[in-house]
């Protein structure tokens, strides 16, 4: 039965994020999402956004929402690999799915139900809230001609990609976001991965790195998420729940198109105005990365039952959709030269 009281009640919620305040595209995505929820609900669910460090440090957003100290969080789910390794499949894993495929899996292929199950343990309800599209391989001051060049390469690359680089003989260096530029400039690191041309341009890496490598084998389309404290989400009236969900879907497409529409403009700027040397990883290097990625994911799946469950769904869906994509899109790209 409709609850008259609930309809008139207004909510003032806080959203913590893992991005510096108003961080280009990603932080702006959180700002947009909060604005839309507030607008669509006509102010009945008023969301204010807090950047990393404003209320809690970036990596504490998960705990803050999980324990109900704040109601919402905006992040990328692979940040929570320490809470459960299965979280990584809902943002990006090396040689994983791209944005369109990940969206299809989560919205239509059973991904959301698994994600809900995983996050329910932490009293959270997750939604997709954005995507970076296919990323770049990163900024390098050493040319990568063969696998030998990975040996001893000092690279800032977090997560599973980092594990792959380490297995290939590289040295993974932990480096805070604010230090990456300086470390790259001074040679403390030889390389760093970041996002894609639009975002990387804003970070100014072209001033301190020679080579810009593609493709982003480790992040083919990293999603961002909105996670809501589950008890608080369930206490919302049905229309506000629907508004949160719809606003997230809008934010998801908005962020992806934001990146996609700008990337090439900035890539051309980087190449033509700043004379960045664009390079593709050699085939044997990519091949090795692929083998090692399978190993790395295999190790996770073997140890953690939930990861296994998620991975089975993920990989089956990926296999299926790739078959179609090869026939449809790959052919289309070839044709449309």
């Amino acid at each position: 039965a409709p609850n008259v009281h609930a309809k008139t009640k207004t909510y003032k919620w806080k959203m913590v994020t893992t991005w510096p305040p108003h961080f280009p595209v990603l932080g702006e995505g959180a700002d947009d999402l909060a604005k839309w929820i507030t607008e669509m609900s006509d102010g009945r669910l008023k969301v204010s956004v807090y950047g990393a460090g404003e209320l809690v440090p970036a990596m504490q957003a998960f705990d803050a929402v999980s324990q109900g100290m704040v109601e919402m969080g905006h992040a990328s789910s692979y940040y929570w690999a320490g809470k459960s390794p299965a979280t990584q499949f809902f943002s990006a894993v090396p040689f994983g799915m791209n944005a369109q495929q990940l969206n299809s899996w989560i919205y239509q292929g059973g991904g959301q139900a698994l994600w809900d199950e995983l996050y329910a343990q932490f009293n959270l309800k997750p939604f997709l809230s954005g995507n970076t599209g296919v990323q770049m391989g990163g900024w390098f001051n050493k040319e990568i001609k063969s696998l030998d060049d990975i040996k001893g390469l000092k690279m800032r690359i977090p997560g599973l990609g980092g594990k792959v680089i380490a297995k290939a003989g590289g040295t993974v260096v932990l480096s805070a976001g604010g230090e990456v530029y300086t470390n790259l400039e001074r040679g403390v690191i030889d390389a760093t991965e970041w996002v894609g041309p639009y975002h990387d341009y804003k970070m100014g890496f072209y001033k301190v790195a020679k080579f810009y490598y593609y493709p982003g084998w480790h992040e083919a389309g990293s999603s961002t998420e909105l996670f809501v404290n589950k008890s608080k989400f369930e206490s919302l009236p049905a229309d506000l729940k629907a508004i949160v969900e719809s606003a997230c879907a809008r934010a998801n497409i908005s962020m992806l198109t934001h990146f996609e529409s700008q990337n090439n403009k900035y890539l051309q700027k980087l190449v033509n105005e700043h004379h960045v040397k664009l390079k593709k990883f050699p085939d044997d290097v990519i091949e090795k990365f692929r083998t090692l990625s399978a190993e790395v994911i295999g190790e996770i799946v073997e140890k953690d039952p939930m990861s296994k469950k998620v991975y089975e769904s993920y990989s089956a869906f990926k296999k299926d959709i790739t078959q179609w994509a090869k026939l449809s899109e790959a052919t289309f790209y070839d044709m449309n030269k």
Partner: peptide
């Protein structure tokens, strides 16, 4: 509660090869 939560979920480092038992 912050500590108990971490214990309950066997929280480890988010980086592969990092330290366990947060």
């Amino acid at each position: 509660p912050f500590i108990i939560n971490s214990y309950h979920f066997h929280e480890v480092s988010p980086d592969p090869g990092g330290l366990p038992n947060r």
